[in-house]
Simulated scan of single mutants.
Amino acid sequence: MEHLPQIKLEVADLSCSRDDRLLFSGLNFSLSPGQVLLLEGSNGSGKTTLLRVLCGFREADDGQIFWSGQPITESTFFADTAYVGHADGTKKELTVAENLRFALALSRSGKYSIEAALEKVQLAGYDDNLVQTLSAGQKRRVSLARLLITDKILWILDEPFTSLDRQGITLIENLIYEHVKQGGMVILTSHHDLSLPQMNLQRIHLDSCH
């Protein structure tokens, strides 16, 4: 994965409301290659909303978001970003391999082949299984494999540990560690206490951003 040194995500004075209730305001942060940002806060504090704003799924009430010094709508931000939300984002009627080939057709190839990615997420041999036959944890692993086969600088992960056992949680932590060590960036929400030693980890608690 090759990154230009000037790549940086900058959020300036971001504010957002839902149903006439202020979620957060005056939010400022920046993220550079090799960094992880953990969004914390109580249920309803706006964690998922903030991720949706970053992904372009909804607009903020106020503020700006820049990627490499340009507004995200005028930059390569969306091409450089991968999002895994509460839903696993797979097509249930397709096989595991078909889902990954579909994702690959829409993105630049990453360092892992489909076969290598499935082995990495402990789904080797599941290539021809229909996604609808998989468990919730296995579907989550398919989403993780999608991250590995595409070359995305920024991973945005909403509660990525959902439906995973301890082994699966460790797997995600290792994938995050590997990604940022190679110059990637990660923004995530989690109720799980992260085990990411020696990582450049920032924390923002949205309950205090009013």
Results as ranks from 00 to 15, higher is better:
residue 92 K to C: 02
residue 66 F to K: 08
residue 164 L to S: 08
residue 62 D to I: 08
residue 207 D to I: 03
residue 191 H to T: 07
residue 206 L to W: 02
residue 110 G to V: 06
residue 169 I to N: 07
residue 90 T to H: 02
residue 83 Y to Q: 00
residue 207 D to M: 02
residue 58 R to D: 00
residue 154 L to E: 03
residue 198 Q to E: 15
residue 50 L to I: 11
residue 25 S to W: 01
residue 102 F to V: 05
residue 134 L to A: 12
residue 17 S to D: 02
residue 75 S to G: 10
residue 190 S to E: 09
residue 210 H to L: 13
residue 113 S to D: 05
residue 169 I to R: 13
residue 142 V to M: 14
residue 64 Q to R: 15
residue 155 W to I: 01
residue 163 S to R: 13
residue 67 W to Q: 02
residue 27 L to K: 06
residue 140 R to D: 01
residue 152 K to W: 02
residue 111 K to R: 14
residue 122 Q to T: 07
residue 141 R to F: 14
residue 27 L to P: 15
residue 27 L to M: 13
residue 132 Q to T: 00
residue 87 A to R: 09
residue 9 L to G: 03
residue 91 K to Q: 12
residue 94 L to E: 03
residue 174 N to C: 07
residue 32 S to E: 10
residue 98 E to I: 11
residue 63 G to L: 11
residue 17 S to Y: 05
residue 50 L to Q: 04
residue 45 S to Q: 07
residue 23 L to H: 00
residue 37 L to K: 03
residue 21 R to Q: 15
residue 10 E to A: 10
residue 11 V to A: 03
residue 190 S to Y: 04
residue 58 R to G: 06
residue 70 Q to S: 15
residue 15 S to M: 00
residue 123 L to M: 11
residue 103 A to D: 10
residue 174 N to V: 06
residue 111 K to C: 14
residue 95 T to C: 12
residue 176 I to P: 03
residue 185 M to F: 12
residue 137 G to C: 06
residue 170 T to G: 15
residue 203 R to L: 12
residue 28 N to M: 04
residue 35 Q to F: 13
residue 78 F to S: 10
residue 3 H to I: 14
residue 23 L to I: 02
residue 108 R to T: 15
residue 21 R to G: 10
residue 95 T to R: 03
residue 15 S to L: 04
residue 17 S to C: 09
residue 201 L to K: 06
residue 125 G to W: 02
residue 22 L to A: 14
residue 199 M to I: 09
residue 81 T to D: 01
residue 195 S to P: 08
residue 34 G to C: 08
residue 205 H to D: 12
residue 184 G to P: 13
residue 50 L to N: 06
residue 107 S to I: 00
residue 110 G to T: 08
residue 203 R to G: 07
residue 193 D to P: 01
residue 103 A to Q: 14
residue 132 Q to H: 14
residue 104 L to M: 14
residue 172 I to P: 00
residue 45 S to Y: 06
residue 144 L to G: 10
residue 114 I to K: 00
residue 145 A to Y: 02
residue 56 G to T: 02
residue 119 E to L: 10
residue 206 L to N: 03
residue 145 A to D: 05
residue 186 V to A: 12
residue 104 L to R: 15
residue 33 P to K: 01
residue 126 Y to I: 04
residue 24 F to T: 04
residue 57 F to S: 06
residue 58 R to T: 11
residue 82 A to V: 03
residue 59 E to P: 06
residue 210 H to F: 11
residue 169 I to C: 09
residue 32 S to Q: 13
residue 167 Q to N: 13
residue 40 E to Q: 15
residue 141 R to L: 13
residue 41 G to K: 08
residue 45 S to D: 09
residue 29 F to I: 07
residue 34 G to E: 06
residue 115 E to Y: 06
residue 136 A to S: 15
residue 101 R to D: 14
residue 137 G to Q: 09
residue 23 L to W: 01
residue 180 V to A: 04
residue 32 S to L: 11
residue 57 F to L: 14
residue 100 L to M: 06
residue 72 I to Y: 12
residue 74 E to Y: 09
